[in-house]
């Protein structure tokens, strides 16, 4: 199995530190979401993993080997970094054939990945006639060309239409299910939440979190319960008896903070409170992320203690 290992990686761009002593591992068989605001160092880290930039110190390896030690690297690692990589005057198929030839990948793979990414009908057209979404698909096609065990995609949903976003979500899930190592950067929280199993979060070049997504959300966002009732007095009394506090939102809507729907449901039922609606409000990735970045300083201190 092939993991990506980033070990004490640092990269300075002049006086600015883009990546700061970063250490994490991306494991196979799951989709790892790579999160952080613009400029947090996500793309730089990906370029360092691919040997495109020279690290100031530290190392990144794939399956224990540095990228430039891989023989015919496209057969091991597929990457989408920039949708503008393909020359506008070349056809989509020729762009892929050129890449395939350098790694002795048979030319028919170009047609296979074009089919897979839905570009087969426009394969013979010049890339400059492509929409941003089509270029993005071409970049993903190039990443899949060598049937690699490791896939790195930088903001793959950029420019995709709604149909394309559904498609990429399914593709990422499938690649992980096939046992591949999948690292996907994004700054869109809801998008990432829809496909990631695991999260690596960066802030100003440093590692802020490296945890399973569910855990990331659950430890940062307390669940809430939403209730609608016809009898506000009965509701507040029943809740207060168990130490819960309800906040009114009008028209009979209430929310109970820091509570689980199982507990509140039983409690209200036992008290005979008339319930029109009862729902759990799970924390979102966005809430968890904002909570994290809000307490970044605190978190860093905690990491150093650990």
């Amino acid at each position: 199995m092939t993991s990506i290992d980033v070990h004490d990686l640092t990269k300075d761009h002049g006086p600015r530190r883009a990546v700061d002593h970063l250490t994490f591992r991306v494991r196979p068989g799951r989709v790892t979401g790579f999160l952080g605001p613009n400029g947090a160092g996500k793309s730089t880290t990906m370029r360092l993993v691919l040997g495109l930039d020279h690290p100031t110190s530290g190392a990144a390896t794939i399956g224990g080997r540095r990228y430039r030690e891989l023989v015919e690297p496209l057969r091991h690692v597929g990457a989408l970094l920039d949708a503008r990589a393909a020359h506008g005057s070349r056809t989509g198929r020729d762009h892929l054939r050129v890449l395939a030839a350098s790694n002795r990948i048979p030319g028919r793979r170009a047609d296979e990945v074009l089919e897979e990414t839905g570009l087969a009908p426009v394969a013979g057209r010049r890339v400059r006639t492509y929409s941003l979404g089509m270029r993005q698909r071409l970049g993903i096609a190039a990443a899949l060309l060598g049937d690699p065990a490791v896939v790195l995609l930088d903001e793959p949903a950029n420019g995709l239409d709604p149909e394309g976003i559904v498609w990429i979500r399914a593709l990422l899930r499938r690649l992980a299910a096939e046992g591949r190592t999948v690292l996907v950067s994004s700054h869109l929280m809801n998008e990432t939440a829809s496909f990631a199993d695991h999260l690596v979060v960066l802030g100003r070049g440093r590692l802020l979190a490296d945890t399973p997504m569910r855990e990331f959300i659950d430890t940062r966002v307390r669940p809430r319960v939403r209730v609608r009732t016809t009898d506000a007095t009965a509701l507040t009394t029943a809740l207060a008896r168990r130490g819960h506090e309800a906040v009114e939102h009008g028209e009979g809507h209430w929310t109970v903070e820091h509570a689980r729907v199982d507990d509140i449901g039983r409690l209200l039922s036992a008290a005979g409170v008339p319930i029109l609606e009862l729902a759990a409000e799970e924390g979102t990735l966005e809430q968890a992320y904002l909570d994290l970045t809000g307490t970044e300083a605190e978190f860093t201190a905690l990491m150093q203690e650990a």
Binding site: R47, L50, G51, L52, Y67, R68, L70, P73, L74, V77, A79, L81, D82, A83, R84, A85, A86, H87, L99, S102, N103, A142
Partner: peptide, 18 residues
């Protein structure tokens, strides 16, 4: 020069790191 347009060099050197 075609290699220095857009992200072309990234794609090229990811395929051929030598």
């Amino acid at each position: 020069a075609a290699e220095f347009r857009g992200g072309a060099l990234h794609a090229t050197l990811a395929a051929v790191p030598w």
